[in-house]
Write a protein that binds this DNA or RNA. Structure first.
Lengths: 192, 192
DNA sequence: TTAATAATGAACATTATGTACTGTTTTACA
DNA sequence: TGTAAAACAGTACATAATGTTCATTATTAA
């Protein structure tokens, strides 16, 4: 077995990226994503202007990169845990509750549209996979499948964000099972 | 009866506002809402910089104002046409189809989040009114009602946008009745 | 210890924003 | 049709963010 080349990331890079990411999260919660400028970020992170551009070329890239991504991926891996043909949102909501501040920054009203879209697309994709076999291969049926999966994804994210922004008034179990119910309802009833 | 004072809007104002609005719509379809600058708008509309600021203080205000609003209001008045406890989306979709280019600019992928939110909130509000009586006055039930109405609204808008962006592959009747079915399904099945 | 490289800070050109002011043109209305 | 009011164009200006470049300093991995 060949030894895996261990890539060591320079500590300076780690520190810089961490500072920038944390500054962005803070600033999103302070103002709102759209209103955060790169200038704000480098001021708050106490990082030189040119340093920012070494690593990123926009705040969008900054938001997508780094340990955010790790968290985001985790969110979705959880969706796969369910057995059978149902999607379980249990772990997703638990994970969201555990990372409330990050989730609010990324998905709340102050968070940019990009992250919400990203989440929505991922949920829709999972839904599409689960229910795909119920639709035949005709173009029309496939379009309907896509439309329904997107709509269900949008509904789930809306549910999730409402819950998150409203101090999580239901238990994770409760909100999660309603989400599952919602998706099932849409596919059983609307796909004819 | 007192004669209603007729307010005549200066022709110059009408012309200016129309030019600015049309420029914005065109620019949204060319680039995307976020990337349109006020500079772009006044260049395309061939209007002086100071003139813009006489009437509006941002592009958001421009988008919300004017005959756009007339159209938007029309969209939603149509939702009230249905008899009984169901919401009919028939006229909405017909109206959207008739104003395809405007609708795409406002609701499509290139359109800003603002208009989509606006639409979603309006649809959610109508839905809430229709189904409100099925929920008791307890805080928890009222929250669930709000969450469900918002989720249903999000699903409807997602459906609408998919349809609009995909060259409207179903008839207005078809897509509209699926929307209605979707809303009903959510409320019958998820509200327990 | 040292060669590599990341960060700093300053400078610079470019672009958008929002305001202010002057002079010109268009309008509503009497 | 004449006139006062207004909307407009055009210019100038201050402010702010963007993105790039470069010389210098510091930190790091080996």
């Amino acid at each position: 077995m060949i030894a895996k080349k261990e890539i060591v990331v320079d500590r300076r890079i780690q520190k810089t990226k961490k500072a920038l990411t944390e500054a962005l999260i803070d600033l999103i919660l302070e103002k709102s994503y759209e209103k955060v400028t790169i200038q704000d970020i480098i001021d708050k992170a106490n990082v030189g202007r040119s340093t920012f551009y070494i690593h990123y070329e926009s705040k969008e890239q900054l938001l997508l990169d780094g340990h955010n991504n790790l968290n985001v991926k985790l969110f979705f891996d959880e969706l796969d845990d369910a057995k059978g043909s149902e999607i379980s949102f249990d772990n997703l909501f638990v994970h969201i509750a555990e990372n409330q501040q990050l989730a609010k920054a990324m998905l709340g009203k102050k968070g940019g549209n990009m992250m919400t879209e990203f989440f929505k697309n991922n949920v829709a994709l999972k839904i599409k996979k689960k229910f795909g076999r119920q639709f035949d291969k005709s173009k029309k049926e496939q379009k309907l499948l896509t439309f329904l999966a997107d709509a269900a994804g949008a509904a789930v994210i809306s549910f999730l964000v409402s819950w998150l922004e409203d101090e999580m008034p239901f238990t994770e179990k409760e909100i999660s099972s309603r989400c599952q119910c919602l998706v099932t309802a849409i596919f059983e009833r609307v796909s004819k």
